[in-house]
Design a protein around this nucleic acid. Structure first.
Lengths: 224, 224
DNA sequence: CTTCCACCAGCAGAATGTTCATGGGCAAGC
DNA sequence: GCTTGCCCATGAACATTCTGCTGGTGGAAG
């Protein structure tokens, strides 16, 4: 995880850098606004921590320049200016969070984590979960409430399709597209049959059912 | 933009609700933890504002339950507990932001905006709303005032047609075109019957009616 | 103000459509 | 040859959709 820290106070920037590196984050430091802006525009970062009061070019100007080019990168403003007006200016320029000095270092880390969490969609494709249902793709195992389920290949594929679109109603043809190979007879009831098999293994021995049918539409993975 | 506010203090929740509604946001309020959790799991929100100290079930427990199901929805914790330990607990449970009471209302709005800004690549056209009626297309769910409605396929189609042309009077043949397939007997009263079904589910148990008849012309979705 | 009539609401039951569960055929792997 | 997984066909159970009808409503004409 790559972080850009723009902070002119060398003592503070060193402190923050060291702390973040202990959290397994990679930190690049810029000591004035211009340098920060150039770095931010030159390479992609996962997060930018930006002081407001900077020599050369204010943090707000830098933020505006960054947002013009990249509206998505998370930016955390970090400054001694704590009035609501200051905060509104920061958010107004496109900041995602605003932390007032002096701050507790643990809180900074927590906010950094919160901002970066979403941008890095956890090792996706390796594990899908819904409620107490857990599917591990590499090992092709599925458990519900910790109890292992023995699924056949088709059943596994079908459940995978459902797990990739939780809460969304999937029509039979959508399911067929993802879980069956090209040739698929629309007049067949294979999908119904496999949903039935799946239910027997996934839902039958549990109180809360997860697989639901929506008449005239298809099937959904839904709680309740 | 749909927001769920979980806050037991009626004065404060009314205040926040009013303020957010002035910002063109739709707000649903829950007054205890259990209600909040049920709502959060029952329908998709763009943002959840969660008090920590709640009767029934603490905000942290509610957050954990939400995160188990939906790791993506932005959650802003809002509480009087302002120590770093409290904040860390909040972030640790999966909060995206943490605001300590008393707070400046403008800052809350700014943080709400910051959190919802990004999350909006919501496939447009995926949700239709009118007054307190919300239709979510992917999950094929419809709620009024947060309460789920069970609609059949036809009823759903019909309501969708109405929701796509709010305030416009739709003739029977226009409705038939969109909600029924080609072959449609003009001499039939099917549409009247389905409007009747819809009314029973959408309007009957609410004071303000949304579906209105325009004699000699058709039907219209209108408030008042 | 009353009458009339096209129009509409709502019901009940028939017709239709959809889904579920099952048994059995077939093919592949052991 | 036996087991296992995959698929099809069938009918029963169920949910939905439609039709036909009765009674009610509202507005224009008298």
């Amino acid at each position: 995880m790559n972080i850009l820290l723009v902070e002119d106070d060398p003592r503070l920037s060193a402190l923050i850098r060291r702390g973040l590196e202990e959290e397994q984050l990679t930190v690049r430091v810029a000591y004035d606004g211009l340098e920060g802006q150039q770095l931010a525009l030159a390479q992609p970062f996962d997060l930018i921590i930006l002081d407001v009061l900077l020599p050369g070019r204010s943090g707000l100007e830098v933020l505006a320049a960054i947002r013009a080019r990249d509206p998505d990168v998370p930016v955390l403003m970090l400054t001694a200016l704590g009035t609501t007006t200051d905060k509104l200016q920061g958010f107004g320029s496109g900041a995602d969070d605003y932390l007032v000095k002096p701050f507790d270092f643990a809180e900074l880390v927590a906010r950094v984590r919160a901002l970066t969490r979403r941008s890095n969609p956890a090792p996706k494709g390796s594990r899908l979960t819904f409620a107490d249902l857990v599917m591990d793709i590499p090992s092709r195992t599925v458990t519900r409430a910790g109890q292992a389920l023995r699924l056949t290949a088709r059943e596994f594929n079908l459940l995978e399709v459902l797990l990739r679109h939780p809460g969304r109603v999937l029509s039979r043809s959508e399911i067929a597209e993802h879980g069956w190979d090209e040739a698929f007879d629309a007049g067949s009831n294979v999908i119904d049959v496999y949903v039935s098999y799946l239910r027997k293994k996934v839902d039958h021995s549990f109180a809360t059912k997860l697989i639901h049918t929506v008449m005239g539409a298809g099937y959904v993975l839904r709680q309740e």
